[in-house]
Amino acid sequence: MRDVARQVMADEETTSADLVPAMCGFVYLMVPEIQELIRRAPLGDVPAQVAQVAVDGACRRVTTPPGIGPAAVRRHARKVAMAVLALCDHYESLSSAADGANTP
Rank of each mutant, 00 (worst) to 15 (best):
M1L: 04
M1D: 08
M1A: 13
M1G: 11
D3E: 15
V4K: 10
V4A: 15
A5Y: 05
R6W: 09
R6D: 14
R6F: 09
V8N: 02
M9S: 08
A10K: 12
D11K: 06
D11F: 02
E12C: 03
E12R: 12
T14H: 15
T14P: 07
T14G: 15
T14C: 03
S16H: 01
S16K: 03
A17G: 11
A17I: 03
D18Q: 13
D18G: 12
A22K: 11
A22Q: 14
C24R: 13
C24W: 01
G25R: 03
F26R: 04
F26K: 02
F26C: 10
Y28R: 15
L29S: 14
L29F: 11
M30C: 08
M30I: 04
M30G: 07
V31D: 01
V31R: 01
P32C: 03
I34R: 00
Q35L: 15
Q35A: 08
Q35S: 11
Q35N: 15
E36R: 11
E36Q: 13
I38A: 10
I38G: 06
R40N: 13
A41V: 04
G44S: 04
G44L: 07
D45V: 05
V46E: 14
V46L: 14
A48M: 06
A48K: 02
Q49T: 09
V50A: 15
Q52E: 15
Q52N: 13
A54W: 01
V55I: 10
D56G: 11
D56L: 06
G57W: 06
A58R: 02
C59K: 13
R60S: 10
R61D: 11
R61H: 13
R61F: 05
R61C: 11
V62M: 14
T63E: 12
T64C: 09
P65T: 08
P65S: 11
P66D: 09
G67H: 05
I68M: 10
P70A: 09
A71I: 07
A72I: 02
A72G: 03
A72S: 10
V73Q: 09
R74I: 00
H76G: 07
A77H: 03
R78E: 04
V80W: 06
V80K: 01
V80P: 08
M82F: 07
A83H: 05
A83L: 07
A83I: 02
V84G: 00
A86N: 08
A86E: 13
L87W: 01
L87R: 01
C88L: 08
D89F: 10
D89A: 12
H90S: 07
E92R: 02
E92M: 06
S93E: 14
S93V: 14
S95I: 10
S95Y: 10
S96C: 08
S96P: 00
A97G: 01
A98F: 07
D99K: 07
G100Q: 09
A101S: 14
N102A: 15
N102I: 06
N102C: 08
T103P: 05
P104W: 10
